[in-house]
Amino acid sequence: MTEPFYRFLMTLRDPKDHSEVANFAQNAFFDHSFPKQAEDYHELSDYLELNGSYLPNMDVFDKAYELYKEKDGSPRN
C-alpha cells in the first residue's frame, strides 16, 4: 500500500528550508481541508487548483508529486 501524498509531503517540511517545495509542505500542514488520504495525482491537482492559493504555481506541486512517485518507485501518473 502506498503512503498518502500528504504523509510524504510532511517529510519535506523544514522551517529552515525556504525552497518552494518546503514552503508548499509547510502551507499544506496548515491547510486543514487538504485531502490527507489522497494518493491520486488528479484528485490532489484538482483540489490544489481550487484551494491551493498558497502555491505560487502548480509546478511546485508537480515537483513534489514527482519526488513522491520516485520514492514509491511508481510511474508519475
Rank of each mutant, 00 (worst) to 15 (best):
E39Q: 15
S53Q: 03
D62M: 09
A38W: 13
S33D: 14
Y41P: 00
Y54N: 02
D62Y: 07
F34K: 09
D46K: 14
P35R: 15
K36E: 01
S33V: 06
Y65C: 02
F34H: 14
L67Q: 06
D59N: 12
E43N: 12
K36A: 05
Y54F: 15
L67R: 11
K63L: 03
S33L: 11
D46R: 15
D40N: 13
K63S: 08
D46F: 08
V60K: 01
E43Y: 11
V60D: 04
S45M: 05
F34L: 13
G52Y: 04
V60Q: 03
S45N: 14
A64D: 06
E43G: 04
Q37M: 03
F34R: 11
A64W: 11
Y65G: 01
S45F: 11
D40A: 07
M58P: 13
D46V: 12
K63Q: 12
S45R: 03
E49S: 15
V60L: 09
Y68F: 15
D46A: 15
Y68I: 04
A38T: 01
K36S: 06
F61D: 06
A64P: 01
S33Y: 13
Y41T: 05
Y68V: 03
Y68E: 00
Y68H: 06
D62W: 01
E39Y: 15
L55S: 07
L44R: 02
K63I: 07
Y41H: 08
E66W: 08
P35S: 04
L48V: 08
